[in-house]
């Protein structure tokens, strides 16, 4: 027996746009996860992999161990965090391209691991995940993440991060512990992406290893680059625009790659010292290229 009955019109409206409303919130979280890494001047192409790890971890915790949603979501944050530590500790000491390449590698190894394991359902993925997440858990998570990031941005840590973006060498000379900040940012970003993955698994009920590939990673990057890094609100705006666009212009869906690609190129080329890149840019200016 239903506890309360919505008027049919509203019910139908919610039903029709449910997936879209959920996607907006989840993409918002993913954009924030990308923002956290870019905010310290690093580039991760593993956000989709972290998301997939969170999705699988939480789905398995729910399906095999019967954990509650909050507990499963906690798992969805901790396991990607561990992966971020493994990937980040050797690479973040090196120039920025190493992290980018290593995170691509992570995505591939992980996909193959899911594909090869019967425990994770192999290529068929996991289905029948209870749809326990909803408006409250998704937008609640987004709100909490947003508030925390705003608080951090305004604190001493935030000022240190800004200093790193502006001039990494100077920041290092001022005694900011660069590797610790970078690793902290990567771990936090993996947790956010994992949380998004956990929520995604618990609203879509079906996940498969190929959902979290390179294309997804690039889409997440385009959220953050379109919105910019001025504040935590900017990347969320980018996610909202890029999620709504294909729905508003259905015909655009076919050109999704063209659109995301152009956005990245235009954002980086024509605003190299502008809102988007200037802030995260300065690292690497004086770092010598490896040869």
């Amino acid at each position: 027996m239903p506890e309360f009955v919505l008027p049919e019109v509203i019910d139908d409206f919610l039903f029709t746009y449910q997936n879209l409303v959920y996607s907006l919130g989840i993409h918002g979280l993913l954009a924030l996860s990308m923002y956290v890494v870019l905010a310290v001047g690093q580039l991760s192409l593993g956000q989709a992999a972290f998301m997939g790890l969170g999705a699988y971890a939480s789905a398995l915790l729910t399906l095999k161990l019967g954990w509650s949603l909050p507990a499963a979501l906690a798992g969805a944050m901790l396991i990607p965090a561990a992966a971020a530590l493994i990937i980040g500790s050797p690479t973040l000491r090196l120039s920025g391209v190493y992290l980018a390449l290593a995170t691509i590698g992570l995505g591939e190894v992980q996909r193959l691991a899911f594909v090869n394991s019967d425990f994770t359902g192999g290529a068929l993925g996991l289905s029948g995940i209870p749809t326990k997440a909803g408006l409250v858990s998704i937008y609640g998570s987004l709100l909490v993440a947003l508030v925390l990031l705003v608080l951090v941005a305004r604190s001493k840590i935030g000022r240190a991060m800004e200093a790193m973006r502006e001039d990494e060498l100077a920041a290092g000379a001022l005694g900011i512990n660069l590797p610790a900040y970078k690793l902290g940012a990567l771990v936090a970003s993996a947790m956010l992406a994992g949380l998004a993955g956990g929520l995604n698994a618990h609203v879509s009920s079906f996940i498969s290893p190929n959902d979290y590939g390179f294309d997804a990673a690039v889409t997440i990057l385009s959220f953050a680059l379109l919105g910019g890094l001025g504040s935590p609100f900017a990347p969320i705006l980018g996610a909202v625009i890029l999620t709504l666009l294909p729905e508003v212009l259905r015909s655009l869906a076919n050109y999704r790659g063209l659109v995301s690609g152009s956005i990245i190129v235009i954002a980086v080329m024509f605003m190299p010292r502008g809102l988007l890149i200037w802030r995260m840019g300065r690292i690497g200016v004086s770092s010598r290229r490896p040869s």
């Binding site: 594909v115 090869n116 192999g122 290529a123 068929l124 993925g125 190929n210």
Partner: peptide, 9 residues
């Protein structure tokens, strides 16, 4: 093909 749902199934 082990990484594709169709061929695995």
């Amino acid at each position: 093909g082990h990484d594709d749902a169709f061929t695995k199934s």
